[in-house]
């Protein structure tokens, strides 16, 4: 193949409007292709190179930093309404590499690779010496707290039995001794008040997800649990991006292919959330 002239790349300003549009398109892509954890938001564009593409268009090669928000990826709340996780709650940063094609004024992601990492304990304690840190999600106290909280939620529900989708966040609080957890749930075809064997329950064809926050407080001779769950409107049967598809973004362990998680980006605004159920 005749070697054409060496392609030279252009290095625009990282805060150039076009660069920012490409970066925002890339972050939207991540948020609609990640199957667990929280939505991320653009924090800083580290590097950009723009390569001409034959016969037309150009490819933005981007390195960007993101920050975790408090919205779970299953939460249909628009990203612009999601709060950035503050430092005192033990922030989580994403480091992403993208290649984004710009053609006919449209941006489409060709490649995405992200890794997320929590802030260091030192940094958290610099701003808040007594703040709790993130705990391993398989810690026995965390697993127990989620189990007790979900049982309490289902016990007061007069609707579907909800099963656990994933534990997304946990902290072991020293004073008062307690465990704080956040987890995602999904409605099943069982009635909460009649379920004797949850293993026999199946997720609804029209997935209905929820997101719960709970605190299990140890006290003399027992424990107290407080749990709040927000149940979202059922997802219309949208074609789901299969987790093992080549373009699935790697921002953590891929969700179980048997339970594809919907891309919420294209739900009509009217379909969004119902009020929280509180226990």
């Amino acid at each position: 193949v005749p070697v054409g002239p060496a392609l030279a790349y252009n290095e625009p300003n990282c805060d150039d409007p076009e660069t920012e549009r490409a970066a925002l398109a890339a972050v939207d892509y991540i948020n609609s292709h990640v199957f667990r954890g929280y939505k991320h938001i653009l924090n800083q564009i580290d590097k950009v190179r723009v390569w001409p593409r034959r016969p037309m268009g150009e490819v933005f090669e981007l390195e960007i930093d993101t920050l975790e928000t408090t919205c779970h990826v299953l939460d249909p709340t628009p990203l612009v309404n999601c709060t950035v996780r503050p430092l005192v709650e033990h922030a989580v940063e994403g480091d992403c590499d993208f290649r984004v094609l710009k053609q006919d004024g449209q941006f489409s992601v060709l490649f995405a690779k992200c890794d997320s990492s929590p802030d260091s304990a030192e940094d958290v304690h610099k701003v808040c010496p007594d703040c709790p840190l993130l705990a391993p999600l398989n810690d026995t106290k965390v697993v127990h707290a989620v189990d007790v909280a979900l049982t309490a939620f289902n016990a007061q529900s007069n609707g579907s039995y909800f099963q656990l989708v994933e534990v997304s966040r946990a902290q072991l609080v020293p004073l008062p001794p307690s465990t704080y957890v956040e987890f995602a749930v999904a409605a099943t075809d069982c009635a909460a008040q009649e379920t004797t064997d949850p293993a026999k329950c199946n997720l609804l064809a029209e997935k209905q997800y929820g997101f719960c926050k709970a605190t299990l407080t140890e006290k003399f001779g027992g424990e107290d649990v407080a749990v709040t769950c927000t149940v979202f409107q059922p997802q219309s049967l949208l074609p789901q991006p299969q987790p093992d598809s080549p373009d699935a973004a790697a921002l953590g362990p891929v969700e179980d292919p048997a339970m594809p998680v919907p891309s919420l980006a294209d739900l009509p605004a009217a379909d969004l959330g119902v009020g929280p159920m509180v226990v």
Binding site: A8, Y9, E11, P12, N13, Q44, D46, V48
Partner: peptide, 27 residues
């Protein structure tokens, strides 16, 4: 071999194009 375009050093300080601004805080 990619020919990296030479940044012609014009008069005055060259604006560092990257990294860009921090929108929230640095972890």
């Amino acid at each position: 071999k990619v020919v990296e375009p030479g940044i012609v050093g014009g008069p005055g300080p060259v604006v560092r194009p990257c990294p860009g601004r921090i929108r929230y805080f640095k972890v």
